[in-house]
Design a protein around this nucleic acid. Structure first.
Lengths: 200, 200
DNA sequence: TTCCTTCACTGGTCTGACCACCTAATGTTT
DNA sequence: AAACATTAGGTGGTCAGACCAGTGAAGGAA
């Protein structure tokens, strides 16, 4: 039932042309318009909140969001990441996805994106997370970007923060400039602890 | 508040030593034990259901699960996979993950797993999905296996079923036997439409 | 104008009530 | 005694109504 409610809310959003930042009708009004109880509306909205698609503010209302899976991530992590093996899988998967995105980004970066990376490196505002964000964005695949984001959030809550030596970024920039995939990968594998080397 | 309830339910599961398949106390009993309203308990349980961690059966009760994100997947897909671009990203990501798993599987398959693959090919019971399932399992990374499963489910609802020529599996088996990663990838790229070839 | 009170509205929670459904104990028939 | 049918209690699903605790804007007081 709340699945159906969910579908109707989706329709309503589409028909009314609501976009990120807009306010949804109140729970009571939705309940009335959709001819279902307020509890059913609430369950549907809670679902959307989980997916990071809406944000509810007590006393104000419900607003459409566009990004952010944090809540979902925290909860999943709380229940799933309990054994050691899962953590190893996480580290390995994250590393593999990052290498994958590096290859794609090396082939696909645009002039604008390259300039942005160069600027960050010149101004020394770059760090591990910013670099990876740039890479996954430059890979031009939004789905991969989301997947990395999730893996990264998980990883950070478990392991904390990673960093690279300063000259790593300089060299990376040169390799990117030439779109030299082999050089990029070589630099990456040298700077990171390849989780694949571990015996399983 | 329901976050807190969630945490308490998690504790309860842990303390009572409940495992997959076990039955949770009823909503009314949880409501009483945790000193919160039944609606709050329901919201917490709904959250767990989303995460694929429990299963509720009307008239029976609530049971602990261990796998399966189906509901979450369906919902996310309903809201996110609306535009053409997202579908392309999906196809590309799925292809990349499969190639990644092929490489890992080629290095990591066990004797037992190899025998299983050989048997399926000899008996001609193999198909695209079974092959990919085998590959992602042989890659020995449960997280990647889950991610592939998700991508595959999405993909299938959009595009339908894929298949390979019969001799593909025979040749793949030979390459796997020699743990020849290059040959495996070559076969794979020849048999599939490389989504990377498309201009973005 | 500026400040403050007030009030309508919102999400958050609780309660009690049905409904549809399942299971298992109970009773009935053969 | 065995097979079947009935019933009663428990469970999740849904709803309506109530109250609480915040928010923000309208309206009044300084």
């Amino acid at each position: 039932m709340y699945i159906e409610t969910l579908e109707q809310i989706r329709k309503m959003i589409k028909e009314d042309g609501l976009v990120a930042g807009d306010k949804l009708p109140s729970e009571r009004e939705l309940s009335e318009r959709l001819k279902v109880g307020r509890s059913s509306v609430r369950e549907a909205l809670r679902a959307l909140e989980f997916l990071g698609l809406i944000e509810t503010r007590r006393g104000e209302g419900t607003y459409i969001k566009e990004v952010g899976n944090h809540r979902l991530i925290d909860l999943l992590g709380m229940f799933i990441l309990q054994d050691e093996r899962a953590k190893e899988d996480l580290a390995e998967t994250k590393w593999l996805i990052e290498r994958l995105c590096l290859q794609l980004a090396c082939q696909r970066w645009t002039e604008q994106e390259f300039a942005h990376l160069e600027k960050m490196i010149r101004q020394k505002t770059i760090d591990y997370e910013l670099f990876c964000k740039w890479v996954t964005a430059a890979a031009q695949n939004y789905l991969l970007e989301r997947i990395w984001r999730v893996l990264h959030d998980f990883f950070q809550t478990i392991h904390g923060i990673v960093s690279f030596p300063d000259d790593f970024y300089e060299q990376m920039l040169k390799a990117f400039a030439k779109r030299d995939v082999a050089a990029v990968i070589k630099l990456w594998e040298a700077a990171t602890q390849n989780p694949l080397s571990k015996e399983r």
